[in-house]
Structure formats: structure tokens, C-alpha cells
Design a protein around this nucleic acid. Structure first.
Lengths: 103, 103
DNA sequence: ACTATATATGATTATATATTCATATATTCA
DNA sequence: TGAATATATGAATATATAATCATATATAGT
């Protein structure tokens, strides 16, 4: 047995999870939404207004992010307030934004 | 002026760079290639053989990664040895792989 | 110059994705 | 229960993307 770490081929499940995570961050609209959620929770309509997007577009993208557990929501009457739900992913996003601005 | 940090809307250029960076990491084939490059540099054919991909597929994906300066190469005769060229991105990839395996 | 080998490129095709419109669902309040 | 508001959903469409095939280019050696 070797004394060096050999990076193995990734199994399908890991490969899928990793690619999905990065795919979530690969779309400008989803980046803008998550970037907005850095500051505080927002309702769907607030997001749509702030980013000049259709309500439907925001809802579809939030569903995508929700499925990956990158965002969560709490209900208040008919309004849903979305906030981020994955510190690790938000950290990566923040780091990459900083990295991109200073390059 | 407020004493709190307000995350601003991202400018188009930053948005594009960030999304492209994550897009590079959002495809299983590119992830496998970069994962292979963790250990050491590889020629195009070595990558194709190791990952059971067509030479053409590997070459196309390497061009993509090269354009984003995520990989670089050195020539030795007719052979090009590719290696990674962005520590930050490779760190993110490694972290996310670890994160995905342990979840 | 010719051959062999390694890699890159262009065109094509199949698939995935984002957005939009129209409409459905859910909640609150009168 | 009916109206108003907020959000979700489904279908359609346009665009982006990845893989493939065929072929071009580049380098080295004879």
C-alpha cells in the first residue's frame, strides 16, 4: 500500500452532488438571488422587484435552490420569506465574488 | 451613510466571471478531469484513457478550462502535459467533494 | 519530404436549461 | 363563501451545452 494520498475516481453519486452544487452557482440569475440573500431574508416578490425578474422566474429558481437545500423559507400569511440555508455554499460564493472583483 | 455592509448588486462583468467559474465546475466530465489533475500533470491521451473519454471530448473540455485559466500546459515533443492553474478553484473543488462525500 | 503520433478544430446532433405565459393553488380577511 | 394577494406549477419555446465524427494541424524522427 502506498504512503501517498491517491485521489480516487469519484463515484457517481458524489460526482452528481458536486456538479449539482456548482450548477446552482453557475447561473447569473441564481447568483443574483443568493447575493441578495446575503443581507437578509426576502419574499419572492421582493426578490423579483429588487432584481427586475418575473415572479415566475424567481419561483422556478427558488425551487431549484430549495431542492438542493441551498435556501429555506418561513411563511407569514401568504408571504414566503426565503433565506439561505447552506453556509458552505454561501462562503464559496462570497469568496469567488471577491476573487473575481479583484482580478 | 450606513454603518452596515450592504451587499451590492453585482456588475455584469463580475456576474459573468463568477458564473463561468462555477460553470466550469458544474459538469461531471470537467470535474473528473480536474480531479485527476489533483495528483499530477497528465497528457491529453492519458486523461482520455484514465477516464474512458474520447480524445476529442477531453481536448474540447481542456480548451474550456484553459480559457478560464483553470489549467495550463507544457509541451514535450508532440505531447502536451496539462496541470491545474488555479489554486482557489481547486480548493473549492476539493472542499465540495469532501463536503459531498460526508453528507 | 514522408510517416507516425499527439492534439486541436469545426460541424452536427442530442440534450439540458432558463424564461415566459397562462393558470392553478393557498392563505387571509371581509 | 367570495375577493384579494402571494406563490407555485405546467407547457412551450428559445438558447446553451456536451459529445461525437471527421478532419486539420503540429511536432519529431527517418
Amino acid at each position: 500500500m502506498g504512503e501517498f494520498i491517491n485521489h480516487q475516481e469519484l463515484d457517481e453519486e458524489t460526482l452528481f452532488l458536486v456538479s449539482q452544487t456548482f450548477k446552482a452557482l453557475s447561473d447569473p440569475t441564481r447568483i443574483r438571488i443568493l447575493n441578495l440573500l446575503f443581507s437578509r431574508e426576502h419574499s419572492v416578490n421582493e426578490i423579483a422587484d429588487a432584481l427586475n425578474l418575473r415572479q415566475s422566474t424567481v419561483s422556478h429558481q427558488l425551487r431549484f435552490l430549495k431542492n438542493l437545500r441551498l435556501v429555506k423559507y418561513r411563511r407569514e400569511g401568504t408571504t414566503l420569506f426565503y433565506s439561505y440555508d447552506d453556509e458552505h455554499v454561501m462562503d464559496m460564493l462570497k469568496q469567488t465574488i471577491e476573487h473575481s472583483i479583484h482580478s
